[in-house]
Simulated assay, not measured.
Amino acid sequence: MKPKSECIPLNPQFSRMFSEELTENDEAIFAKITTTRLSSEQVDRIVNPATLYPRQETVLAVHWHPEHIPLELVEQRIHNTFPNMKKSLIIPTQHNELLCFHEYAGVEIDAYSKGFNQKVQLLLHFHERRVQSAHVLKSMLAYTLKYRQHQMNDLLDTLIKPNESRIQLAATETGANDECIRFVQAQMKKLSLLIGHHYDKIPIEVFKNKLLRDFLDEYRPEYGDAWINRAQIFLHAVKQIVKSQFPMRYFYRTSEIIEEVRSLGGGIVIPHPEQFWPILLADYDVDGYEIWNPQSRRYTEFLISVVNRKNAVQIRSSKRLLLFMGDDTHMGEKIRDVDKQDPEKAAREIGVQPAWEEIPIRKALITANMSRKCVIEEYKARLGEEMPKTDPQ
Rank of each mutant, 00 (worst) to 15 (best):
L10Y: 06
L10C: 09
L10S: 03
L10Q: 05
L10P: 02
N11V: 11
N11H: 06
P12N: 10
P12T: 08
P12M: 13
P12A: 11
P12S: 08
P12C: 01
Q13L: 10
Q13M: 11
Q13T: 13
F14C: 14
F14T: 11
F14D: 01
F14P: 00
F14I: 08
F14Y: 14
F14H: 15
F14L: 13
S15Y: 01
S15R: 13
S15T: 14
R16F: 11
M17P: 01
M17L: 09
M17V: 09
M17T: 08
F18C: 06
F18N: 03
F18V: 07
F18K: 08
F18R: 12
S19M: 05
E20N: 14
E20A: 06
E20C: 05
E21D: 02
L22G: 02
L22K: 01
L22Y: 00
L22S: 04
T23A: 09
T23K: 03
E24H: 14
E24M: 13
E24S: 15
E24F: 07
E24A: 15
N25W: 08
N25M: 12
N25H: 15
N25E: 13
D26I: 10
D26S: 12
D26F: 07
D26N: 15
D26R: 06
D26K: 07
E27D: 11
E27F: 06
E27C: 12
E27R: 10
E27Q: 12
A28V: 02
A28D: 05
I29H: 00
I29N: 00
I29A: 00
I29W: 00
F30D: 03
F30C: 03
F30V: 13
F30P: 08
F30Y: 10
F30L: 14
A31Y: 01
I33E: 00
I33P: 01
T34F: 14
T35Y: 00
T35P: 02
T35Q: 05
T35G: 02
T35E: 00
T35D: 01
T36F: 09
T36K: 06
T36L: 12
T36D: 08
T36Q: 10
T36P: 04
T36S: 14
R37Q: 06
R37T: 12
R37S: 09
R37F: 06
L38P: 02
L38I: 11
S39K: 13
S40V: 14
S40T: 10
S40I: 09
S40N: 11
E41K: 15
E41W: 05
E41D: 08
E41Q: 15
Q42V: 10
V43Q: 07
V43P: 01
D44I: 09
D44S: 11
D44Q: 13
D44H: 09
R45S: 08
R45M: 07
I46C: 09
I46E: 01
I46W: 06
I46K: 03
I46G: 11
